[in-house]
Simulated assay, not measured.
Amino acid sequence: MGSGGFASPDVAAKFNACPAHARRALMSIRDWIFELAGEIDGVGPITESLKWGEPAWRPKSGSGITIRADWKAKTPDQVMIFFDCKTDLIDRTRSLLSTDLMTEGNRAIILPLDRPLPEPAIKTALGWALTYHRDRKQDLKQQAT
């Protein structure tokens, strides 16, 4: 899918309702998700939809978890990327990428809009999310042997 070309008119409307600087950041995140899905073995096509009113992406292959990203009027100077709070992804992000990314609790990465997005760190975290289930299955197999 990539840049533009929204499969869902609801997702397109959500992006278009954001201020320009937030929309650019969200489009970068969206583009990186689709780019990574095409580059990482076993991820494949992405389903794009709205979940809880936020743009959401999930690998059709089941290799990873749902990733959501949004801008909120109550916090106009940032966008956030949300992961399932039952995963260890935010803890992993906090411990391994903490100098590049701010986090909130165990569910979100906070990205201030007054500076460039830290692309390598975001892509690393997105890659972890896109392969979360696949990686956990491999870890369990390795532990069993």
Rank of each mutant, 00 (worst) to 15 (best):
S3L: 09
G4E: 13
G5E: 14
F6V: 00
F6A: 07
S8D: 14
D10W: 11
K14W: 03
K14R: 12
N16K: 14
N16E: 12
N16I: 00
N16W: 08
C18L: 08
A20C: 06
R23Y: 01
R23S: 07
I29E: 07
R30S: 08
W32D: 11
I33S: 03
E35P: 05
E35H: 03
E39C: 03
I40Q: 01
G42R: 01
V43T: 08
P45G: 10
P45N: 10
I46G: 01
L50S: 10
L50G: 13
K51L: 08
K51P: 13
W52Q: 10
E54Q: 15
A56D: 09
W57I: 08
R58Y: 06
K60D: 10
K60F: 05
K60C: 12
S61K: 04
S61C: 12
G62T: 04
I67Q: 04
R68S: 14
D70S: 13
W71T: 01
K72R: 13
K72N: 07
K72H: 12
D77C: 02
D77A: 09
F82G: 11
F82H: 11
F83Q: 11
D84V: 13
C85P: 13
K86T: 15
T87A: 06
D88A: 15
D88K: 15
L89N: 08
L89E: 02
I90G: 06
D91V: 12
S95N: 12
L96K: 13
L97R: 10
S98M: 02
D100Q: 14
L101C: 08
A108I: 08
L111T: 07
L117T: 14
P118A: 02
P120M: 01
P120R: 02
I122W: 03
I122S: 02
I122Y: 00
T124C: 11
W128G: 06
L130V: 04
Y132A: 09
H133I: 05
D135H: 10
D135M: 04
R136C: 02
K137Y: 08
Q138F: 06
K141W: 11
Q142T: 14
Q142W: 13
Q143E: 14
T145H: 15
